[in-house]
Computed example of a mutant assay.
Amino acid sequence: MAESALPLSPAAGPVAPGWAQRAAPVAAVLTVVLLAWYGLAVWLNAPGVIERVLAPAGDWGGRELLAATWNAQRPVVPTPHQIGADLWSSWVDWPLDSPRSLALHTWVTGQATLTGFVLGTALGVALAACIVHSRTLDRALLPWIVASQTVPVLAIAPIVLVILGSLGFSGLLPKAVIAMYLCFFPVTVAMVQGLRSPQRLEMELMHTYAASRIQTFWLLRLPAALPFLFPALRVSIAAGLVGAIVAELPTGAQAGLGARLLTGSYYGNTVQIWSALVMASVLGLALTGAIGLLERSLTRRTAPRRPA
Rank of each mutant, 00 (worst) to 15 (best):
V271L: 13
V146I: 14
G264A: 15
E64Y: 01
W70G: 08
A122S: 14
R305Q: 15
V242D: 12
L220F: 06
A224G: 02
F230N: 07
P227V: 13
T302S: 12
V151K: 03
L182E: 01
A27Y: 10
N71G: 11
F217E: 06
I159C: 04
I273S: 04
A303D: 08
I163T: 11
G168W: 11
R135M: 04
T208K: 03
L102A: 05
P14M: 00
I50A: 06
I159R: 06
I245A: 08
V192I: 14
A276V: 06
Y38L: 15
A5Y: 00
L104V: 04
V242K: 02
A67G: 05
L173H: 03
G48L: 05
I83F: 01
V160F: 10
T263L: 14
A238G: 09
W91M: 08
L114R: 01
V77K: 12
V177E: 02
G39F: 15
L114A: 11
T109H: 06
L249S: 13
V162Y: 08
T251V: 05
S297I: 15
A103D: 05
F185M: 09
L141P: 03
A280W: 03
L283F: 07
S170T: 08
V187H: 02
A20E: 03
V108K: 00
T79H: 04
I178F: 00
A103L: 09
E248G: 12
F230V: 14
H105A: 09
P56K: 10
A210P: 02
R260T: 14
T208W: 04
W91R: 09
A239G: 13
A68K: 00
A276K: 00
I214S: 07
F169R: 03
D86G: 01
A238T: 14
G124W: 07
W107V: 15
P231Y: 13
G168F: 09
R63H: 02
S4W: 00
V271C: 13
A179H: 12
H81G: 13
P158E: 14
L127A: 06
